[in-house]
């Protein structure tokens, strides 16, 4: 009996908190955490609309679930590669501050 709007507002707040974290943090792992929060907010939205559409159509909607699944897969891939890059940069530069990563030389 929960209005759809509650989910959307929650997702918006979570997304913007993640966005804020990704914008202002210096440490690149902290930026990654902000991105994870944003992806979670997206998933809340997708699944809320999945519920809404299943309720309106009277049948289980597959599209929404596949969307959410792809988001999870993308989040996993993104976390794996991003953290690998951060560790690699750390080994070469001894720094994981995002502002210091201003050269492409390995």
């Amino acid at each position: 009996m929960i209005p759809l709007s509650w989910y959307l507002i929650l997702a918006a707040i979570l997304f913007l908190l993640g966005l804020y974290g990704a914008m202002v943090r210096k440490n690149s792992i902290a930026i990654l955490m902000g991105v994870e929060l944003m992806l979670n907010a997206v998933n809340i939205n997708i699944l809320a609309f999945w519920h809404y559409h299943s309720q309106v159509n009277g049948a289980i909607e597959i599209n929404g679930m596949v969307f959410a699944a792809i988001v999870v897969i993308a989040a996993a891939a993104e976390a794996a590669v991003a953290l690998a890059i951060i560790i690699s940069v750390f080994r070469n530069n001894k720094s994981i501050v995002a502002a210091d990563m201003n050269t492409l030389k390995g």
């Binding site: 699944a69 999870v72 897969i73 996993a76 891939a77 976390a79 794996a80 953290l83 690998a84 560790i87």
Partner: peptide
């Protein structure tokens, strides 16, 4: 050592695969 991270990475990929 980096080895721990590599195991965790391979685990993450296979975990996601198995879940789906």
């Amino acid at each position: 050592r980096i080895q721990y991270y590599l195991y965790a990475l391979v685990f993450l990929i296979f975990d996601v695969e198995t879940v789906f």
